[in-house]
Write a protein that binds this DNA or RNA. Structure first.
Length: 891
RNA sequence: GGGCAGAUGGCGAAAUUGGCAGACGCACUGGCUUUAGGAGCCAGCGAGAGCAAUCUCUUGAGGGUUCAAAUCCCUCUCUGCCCACCA
């Protein structure tokens, strides 16, 4: 009989689906286990082998848990909204709504072939109105609780995708999607207040079981730094010398209060170097430099205003990329006519504008300490500014010592020491340790301690078509009403979000979803508005609050908002019967309580700072609204490695994308699954080289041959089968001579069990290969044969199910109990004692287990070979490691 | 520039966590089988010396700790991923 995988695989796909063996009764199950993997976005090319790699990795774990007695829920869906899908639709000239249906069909077809235990009835697609109704509902909750707000800001704009991007999607000044250079554009956009959760997002990392590298990536992204806010008063020339200038007369006309409040505040993590601050630098976008600034009419005060203004204009026009491409070559212009006062020593120091200082970092202004900061040092050298040393590196007495923070000779001699040390040239703080000095100096100059985060608020507006319409409406009448009611908020019927964003009214929950209309011309226009802005029937609405004419928001939301809650989606929709009318209660439904948080989440590490941060943020926010009972949705997460092909990441441009279909057709899903898992540990990734798949094919064919070999006396007539099986049992169960050694069998059970738990599927498979070889060479009891199939089942679900039935079983192997190893069989009676001389392997002896050192010494020294080796040598010392080795140390 | 991984035969990798380096598989070589191709079976397979038993060398480079290092420590080189003028 030949192993006809395509027939077998088709057959079981059908049976499993009909019997719904992977569809737990979500309400009634006793031991829920939510096995989640990142859902795919249905890319143009269909499922590629990298997806399959990830899915299989997750599925094996799920199947293992199912066999361990859990009711495993392994859902699947499509993340089909978003720019990626839309761009593809544009490219091939098909409407995204039409294309999504085509992709969906293709994806699900492929996903059915790969042998995963998906709960098909619960599948979801983010572009279905019944799904995005909830995406909108969540946005409305965020809005009402003041976590969504509108702000005008210079944002990342991709001229090719014609939309704004989140910080996380702007890589090296280029669009993450298409690689186009990003430009800055001032637009009013919706933001979600993720920064409010910065500290908690950081702290909670300590109590979730995630790979360290993903935690570190999030930590760095959140970027907590402790420092101080310090004010530097600004003085015009008149304060420095007595010659009156035109600027001075202007300045004198300012009121007293205004004059007092003229200062620049900087954020620094190194207030201990304050005495070394020899100039200030403002970002080009700094508010002080705005002509409209009421505090200081800067254009009148600054003598070289023209030059300054042109510098500001020039740097604003620069793209992100240009700023980076210029490398470390810093430019800047001094603001002549004004000086700042160093609050530590009263010195007047120049003020510069330079674009190496960024607006959105800290306060957008820095105190420059060229003596102890590399960037300031470089700048000061170029423009001949004063460099002052205020920290003396402390030398330890032990020059070889390389303990952390101890400077090397090289570092001390270099002109810019950025480490800690002892203060000098710092007045009364001389001699103080720089770490201590941080707070002391901050206090001395009346500064404030401040914790700062790198994390920015999440910009969710997209000026595109293929996404979730942001469910808000702008009403002029309500705007006035809100602005007037500000003083009597108590009586106001407006929510927090409506008060904070005057005129913006949330779409009432009963009106959700705001459906994305089908429009012919869905292409982005590039004028900073979505294509929906030209659809009158869409945006012309009545205000839900007051009934007057109002305008609907026409931007759609970032697709990451869709994926930030999909794990909840599987439990509240999917199976339509469960859809709950009362929206408020749905997130705290019994299903949510029962199944969440997710037990095991597997996905790509590339989402470390996008999806995985947003999802945590959203859960926390919903938790605080008392809508969820947990704040960390994924207590356990594992990242699979990257599957590469021909040494490079799979990509269309390189032409090395591998489609799994051909391989499934040629070798079967079982073979492809096992091959992918055999490459390397899941968390490491691997290089797809198809020639290796033959090894697995051979293995599967040998298994098939072994189980259908007539020598095993499995009768061809199904009715007789059990009888003959019994004969098999009687024949082999007590003939130890021929049986597979219990030791090997139980060792394999242990190995496979532990390897699946740690996702080391490659070594689990190799141990199964070893066991099969032993089985082929001896004869095995039926129960041994069953055990082997069970161990194989998570990896190769089809062939194991087929053979399970061929040896007379009636129920699915995937519902069978996972074998448990018996430690009694693991004990060795005899072991190989390694004999070393001076740590070098020389010989081995087979000796009884658990012998002590004396016995081992005796046995070893009686051995002829060992005697010879030790002849004439003086034994200095003997090292004995029980059940392992004995080492004779000689001169 | 910073962070995180990693470097082991011709290739993917394994190594009980400090104890026989190279399990398992691919590729390759020889033999058997086959009309042939494919497939299968048996044997070999890190390098060097030897008929052989056996010996020497070998885990990116160099040093150290230890009876014993792929594994721990230090210095360096290279590769991949992530972040990047973050004050």
């Amino acid at each position: 009989m030949k192993y006809n995988f395509s027939k077998i695989e088709k057959k079981w796909q059908k049976v499993w689906r009909e019997k719904k063996i992977y569809e737990p009764d979500l309400l009634r199950t006793k031991r829920p286990f939510y096995n989640l993997m990142m859902f795919p976005y249905p890319s143009a090319e269909g499922l590629h082998v990298g997806n399959m790699y990830a899915f299989t990795g997750s599925d094996i774990y799920g199947r293992f848990k199912r066999m361990q007695g859990y009711d495993v829920f392994e859902p699947i869906g499509l993340d089909g909204f978003g720019i990626h899908s839309e761009n593809y639709a544009i490219k091939i000239g098909v409407h995204p709504m039409t294309q999504s249906k085509i992709s969906e069909k293709r994806f699900y077809q492929q996903l059915k072939m790969i042998g995963n235990g998906f709960a098909w009835d619960e599948r979801l697609e983010t572009y279905n109105p019944n799904y995005y109704k909830w995406t909108q509902w969540i946005f409305v909750q965020m809005f009402k609780h003041g976590l969504a707000y509108r702000k005008k800001q210079g944002v990342n704009w991709c001229p090719s995708c014609k939309t704004v991007l989140a910080d996380e999607q702007a890589l090296n000044g280029k669009c993450e999607r298409c690689g186009t250079t990003i430009i800055k554009k001032d637009l009013e956009q919706w933001f979600l207040k993720i920064t409010k959760y910065a500290e908690r997002l950081l702290q909670n990392l300590n109590r979730i079981d995630w790979p360290e590298k993903v935690k570190i990536a999030q930590k760095n992204w959140i970027g907590r730094s402790e420092g101080a806010l310090i004010k530097f008063p600004i003085k015009s020339r008149i304060d420095a010398d007595k010659t009156r200038t035109k600027a001075d007369s202007v300045r004198e006309n300012l009121g007293r209060n205004q004059r007092k409040s003229a200062f620049v505040e900087v954020f620094t993590t190194r207030p201990d170097t304050l005495f070394g601050a020899t100039y200030l630098v403002l970002a080009p976008e700094h508010p002080l430099l705005k002509i409209s600034n009421f505090q200081l009419p800067i254009s009148n005060l600054i003598e070289n205003w023209k030059e300054v203004e042109s510098y500001i204009e020039k740097s604003k026009k620069k793209t992100e990329e240009e700023r980076i491409m210029e490398g470390r070559e810093k430019t800047g212009v001094e603001l002549k006519g004004i000086k700042a006062v160093n609050p530590a020593n009263g010195e007047r120091i120049p003020v510069w504008v330079a674009d190496y200082v960024l607006t959105d970092v800290g306060t957008g202004a820095i105190m420059a300490v060229p003596g102890h900061d590399g960037r300031d040092f470089e700048f000061a050298k170029k423009y001949n500014l004063e460099i002052k040393k205020v920290i003396l590196p402390v030398l330890t007495k032990n020059p070889v010592g390389s303990a952390q923070g101890v400077p090397s000779e090289v570092a001390i001699q270099s002109e810019c020491w950025v480490g800690n040390g002892e203060l000098i040239n710092s007045g009364k703080f001389d001699g103080m340790d720089s770490k201590k000095a941080r707070w002391a100096i901050t206090e001395f100059v009346g500064g404030k301690q401040k914790v700062q985060y790198r994390l920015r608020d999440w910009l969710i507006s997209r000026q595109r078509y293929w996404g979730v319409p942001i469910p808000v409406i702008f009403c002029e009448a309500c705007k006035k009403r809100v602005e007037n009611s500000k003083f009597e908020i108590r009586n106001s019927k407006f929510s927090k979000g409506e008060l904070e964003n005057p005129g913006w009214i949330a779409v009432p929950e009963k009106d959700l979803p705001v459906k994305l209309p089908f429009i012919e011309d869905f292409r982005p226009k590039g004028k900073g508005v979505s294509p929906l802005a030209s659809v009158k029937s869409f945006y012309e609405v009545k205000c839900p609050a007051c009934g007057t004419k109002a305008r609907r928001e026409t931007d759609v939301s970032d697709t990451f908002l869709d994926s930030a809650w999909y794990y909840l989606g599987y439990l509240i929709l999917g199976n339509q019967k469960r859809e709950i009318k009362n929206k408020k209660s749905s997130f705290s439904s019994p299903l949510i309580k029962k199944w969440l948080p997710v037990n095991m989440y597997i996905g790509g590490a590339e989402h470390a700072v996008l999806h995985l941060l947003y999802v945590r943020f959203l859960a926390m926010a919903l938790h605080d609204m008392k809508l969820l009972h947990f704040e960390e949705p994924f207590p356990k997460f594992r990242a699979h490695g990257l599957l590469i092909s021909r040494g490079a990441k799979m990509s269309k441009s390189k032409g090395n994308v591998v489609n799994p279909d051909d391989y499934i057709k040629k070798f079967g899903a079982d073979a492809l699954r096992m091959y992918l898992m055999f490459l390397a540990p899941l968390e490491q990734g691997g290089d797809f080289q198809d020639r290796g798949i033959l090894g697995i094919t051979r293995f599967l064919e040998r298994i098939y041959k072994f189980y259908s070999d007539p020598k095993l006396r499995i009768h061809p007539n199904p009715q007789k089968r059990s009888q003959f099986t019994n004969i098999r049992i009687n024949n082999f169960v007590d003939s130890d001579k021929f049986a597979v050694s219990d030791r090997l069998l139980h060792k394999t059970i242990k190995k496979v069990t532990e390897d699946i738990e740690t996702l080391h599927y490659n070594t689990a498979i190799s141990s199964l290969m070893i066991l099969l070889k032993q089985m082929e060479e001896s004869e095995s009891s039926l129960s041994d044969c069953q055990t082997f199939l069970k161990l194989l089942a998570p990896f190769a679900p089809f062939i194991s199910e087929e053979l399970w039935h061929q040896i007379g079983q009636k129920t699915s192997i995937h519902k069978e109990k996972w074998p448990v190893y018996n430690p009694a069989f693991m004990k060795d009676e005899i072991f190989k004692l390694i004999i070393q001389i001076n740590g070098v392997y020389r010989h081995f002896l087979e000796v009884p287990a658990n012998i002590n050192q004396r016995e081992a010494e005796n046995l070893a020294s009686q051995n002829e070979r060992v005697k010879n080796l030790l002849k004439g040598q003086k034994i200095k010392k003997i090292i004995f490691v029980p059940n392992r080795l004995i080492n004779f140390v000689v001169d």
